Amino acid sequence: MGFKLLSKLLVYLTASIMAIASPLAFSVDSSGEYPTVSEIPVGEVRLYQIADGVWSHIATQSFDGAVYPSNGLIVRDGDELLLIDTAWGAKNTAALLAEIEKQIGLPVTRAVSTHFHDDRVGGVDVLRAAGVATYASPSTRRLAEVEGNEIPTHSLEGLSSSGDAVRFGPVELFYPGAAHSTDNLIVYVPSASVLYGGCAIYELSRTSAGNVADADLAEWPTSIERIQQHYPEAQFVIPGHGLPGGLDLLKHTTNVVKAHTNRSVVE
């Protein structure tokens, strides 16, 4: 069995187990497998329904001669939608809004960016022009300005110390501490036991640490421990890039980060 097929099978099995364990909360999309990078042309966006009122959005972007996937989250909030992270750029984010209108038909009224990198804030200006209120932590807003990236308009308070959590509509926002970046936030959907790890969490097929220019490698494993301790009931975990899975993604990420750190020390 090929690795790609095995990865998709694991996603399907995880979703099936969740649907059985929580039949009222989960209505997993039966329309197909989780979209992969090879299936999404740059400039297009796919939506994948995880649970009743919960979707991931998947886009792709060219970077350094390669094409990478990027995940975000959409959560229903009454007759409105909360968006977590842009679709990595203005063109993708405009396509995301169009796809949401086509498939869901509810307005996106608020959006949260989970850290300051372009795959999370690139497209904020498109959201703002569409009347979406954009939010991020003060740290993310400051770092985005320093980096020359787009800056969300509103500040999220109460997320300055490791372990801080605040309720934001249908989700809980959690600051686990520094990891992929010093400002990275985690998003949890309690009604569906869905954990969105953003770039602080890796997919299972990833074996290298990737972009760690703004990471705190020493603190990252401790931050992941905080996530595990705060959300032990999480059933569906979405990484910032690639295929979702279960809580095993947290341990896998820790292993990859520690291996990278150990290699760096040896070198």
Rank of each mutant, 00 (worst) to 15 (best):
S16E: 09
V108C: 03
R206M: 10
S181E: 01
A209V: 10
D119P: 00
G131A: 09
V266Y: 06
V166I: 06
L24M: 08
D216C: 06
L127I: 15
V265T: 14
V266F: 13
Y135W: 06
G197M: 02
G72D: 02
Q103N: 12
I40P: 14
S31H: 04
N184F: 02
K102S: 15
S62L: 09
T114H: 00
I84V: 14
G246Y: 09
A144W: 03
A200N: 00
E203S: 14
T36E: 13
V194Q: 00
D125C: 03
F168R: 02
L106D: 12
E101C: 14
V212E: 09
S223C: 03
N255W: 08
F174K: 01
E172K: 14
T253H: 00
Y34L: 11
A144I: 09
N71I: 02
V257N: 04
E267M: 14
I40M: 08
V237I: 13
A144V: 09
D52Q: 07
E172Q: 14
G32D: 10
A234S: 13
D216M: 11
E33C: 14
V126M: 10
H252Y: 12
P176F: 01
Y196T: 02
A21S: 09
I151R: 06
G131E: 12
G78R: 07
A234Q: 04
T134Y: 01
D118N: 05
H115A: 00
Y231N: 03
A178Y: 05
V108Q: 00
T182N: 05
I58M: 14
I74R: 01
L81V: 13
A136E: 02
R167H: 04
E233W: 09
Q235M: 08
A94Q: 12
G242C: 03
H252V: 10
A209P: 15
T153Q: 12
V54G: 01
A87T: 01
S193K: 08
D52C: 03
V67F: 09
T207L: 12
V265H: 08
L249K: 01
V28L: 07
L173Q: 01
G53E: 10
K251M: 13
H180N: 01
N92Y: 03
L217P: 08
P190I: 04
T14Y: 06
P232F: 15
D79R: 13
Y12Q: 08
G148V: 10
L217E: 07
L250Q: 00
L106A: 13
V75A: 06
G53T: 05
T114E: 00
G245A: 07
A218N: 09
P190H: 05
S162N: 05
L204S: 06
L243P: 04
V75N: 01
A59N: 05
S113N: 15
D85T: 01
N211Y: 14
Y12C: 13
G65C: 03
H260L: 05
V67R: 08
V126G: 10
A215D: 13
T254Y: 07
N255D: 04
V126Y: 15
L159Q: 01
L73D: 02
L195A: 01
L185H: 00
R141A: 13
A179D: 03
I186T: 07
S161Q: 14
L247S: 05
A144K: 05
P69K: 07
A111K: 03
G78Y: 12
L247N: 05
I201E: 01
K8P: 00
T36G: 07
K91I: 12
P190G: 09
A178F: 07
Y48Q: 09
I238G: 01
H260N: 07
H180C: 00
G78F: 15
V187E: 01
Q235P: 12
A59K: 05
P221T: 13
F26W: 06
P152M: 04
R142S: 09
F3D: 05
S191G: 11
R226E: 10
R128Q: 09
E80L: 15
T134K: 01
Q228W: 11
G65H: 05
A179S: 12
I84C: 01
D52F: 06
I84Q: 00
E225N: 15
S139Q: 13
G245Y: 04
S205M: 14
G131W: 12
I238H: 01
S70Q: 03
G72F: 02
F26R: 07
E225S: 12
A133F: 12
Q61W: 09
S205H: 07
E150Y: 04
N149P: 08
A129Y: 11
E150R: 04
E99H: 15
D77T: 07
L9P: 12
E44Y: 09
P35R: 11
P107H: 04
L96T: 12
L83R: 01
S223F: 03
V126P: 03
V212Y: 10
I104N: 01
A218H: 11
S160T: 13
S155I: 06
P170A: 12
V28S: 13
N211Q: 06
P239V: 09
D216H: 10
P232A: 09
T182P: 09
V166P: 03
T93A: 01
A234I: 13
E219L: 09
A218C: 15
G78K: 12
L47A: 08
G105I: 15
G245I: 01
A94M: 13
E33D: 14
G123W: 03
I224T: 06
S31N: 05
E157F: 12
P221R: 12
